Computed example of a mutant assay.
Amino acid sequence: MTTTAPCPLPTSPADPFDLDLLEDPLAFQADLRDAGPVVYLEKYGVYAMGRYEQVRAALTDWQSFQSAAGVGLSNFRFEKPWRPPSVLLEADPPFHDAPRAVLTKVLGPRALLRLRDEWIADADRLVAQVLDTGVEIDAVPALAQAFPLRVFPDAVGLREAGRENLLPYGNLTFNAFGPHNSLVQAGEPLVAGLSAWVNEQCRRENLSDNGFGAQIWAASDRGDITPTQAPLIVRSLLTAGVDTTVNGLAAVLYAFATHPEQWQRVREDPSLARTAFDEAVRWESPVQTFFRTATSDIRVGDVTIPDGEKILMFLGAANRDPRRWTRPDDFDLHRDPSGHVGFGMGIHQCVGQHVARLESEALLSALARRVTAIEPAGTPQRHLNNTLRSWESIPLRLIT
């Protein structure tokens, strides 16, 4: 990192979307934090924040750091979105309020209480099936992907046919928040087909009568939201409700394989399963970055971010900021991970985070009842994405 005089703004020539940095971003993120509270990324002409204090403040100040101009590199003030913007993620009050209120109610405590026993039983069945195949598994397809894809589409009310499209569509969507690099280009042939499939699933007639999707359409019937908003809210569930949970589960399983003493703590006290998931979300940050746009000239420390400029917030860097966390690179269940920004913060905080926590609790509790140790069984492989911290493969040995 270098500082260009006389402006106090630190600058960096690094490309955070370079494939090598996506593979291993930790050294870059440490440099970003050390350079200052705001750093100018020359490659894209955007401002960046990597420290916890500034990232958290920007996430909670939607009036100054808007989402409506897009949470990716594209600036919707000047560029046309590749799909209709999300009425949750890419909207601000007042347009954001009604969809958020509906989805908060649909995914509220009563819904989770209704699903809890069913999901715990389903997790037990999955773990039993996995163990029947042998002690060595690839945890990504066998557990991290399998469990959310078993329970969440049913809860939404999706048909069985085509569910294999959910992860590719999410991968494409989260890649699109970054630059038009090789990852985006690789997905371009799939855009039309996957988008058409997802949009079709959001139609009322293609959803079951008793799932989250039906409840969203019922809110439209009551006038809480418009008929135009309803399918977009269902689409938000399908976009963000699977990939982030899959990567959170992969992160916590990898954490236990590399920190065996922490797995023993969960086995001794299963109530730590939820803490473990949040600590893994802090430690790995499945969602690494999101953009905001300045609504006016904004002063951050000694730096003024001009109106209309893009700000890239590094959630992963903030979640490992030593100014906020003691020994931040450690996965440690003695830590209270509450306050991490892995699910965002403020009015755009992930509305489905409690669903993800329930899925994790169910799966980890099922494993804790049967598995005495989780060990690495090979070299894990990353799946690169412009926004997500993902795994392609995590070979594990489950000792019973």
Score class of each variant (00 low, 15 high):
L158A: 09
D61G: 02
P84M: 06
L89Y: 08
P148R: 04
F76Y: 15
R150K: 13
R77P: 00
P141M: 07
A98R: 15
Q63A: 13
F65E: 01
D122L: 08
K80M: 08
K105L: 07
V102I: 08
L103S: 09
A57M: 00
W62F: 12
P99F: 02
S86N: 05
F78G: 05
P81T: 00
D132Y: 04
I120F: 14
R110Q: 14
Q145Y: 11
L143Y: 07
R110M: 10
I137M: 12
V156Q: 08
L88K: 00
L126D: 04
P109M: 09
V156W: 03
E136G: 08
A146P: 01
N75V: 06
S74G: 04
Q63E: 15
F95N: 11
S86M: 06
P141K: 03
D138W: 07
L59M: 10
D138Q: 07
R116G: 11
F65I: 00
D138A: 05
S86I: 03
P93D: 11
R150P: 05
K80Y: 02
L88N: 05
A121I: 03
Q66P: 00
E90Y: 01
P141W: 02
F78Y: 11
E136R: 15
I120A: 15
A111K: 09
A101P: 04
A91F: 01
K105H: 13
F152E: 10
A121Y: 05
F152W: 13
L59R: 08
D122Y: 01
R125F: 07
R125C: 09
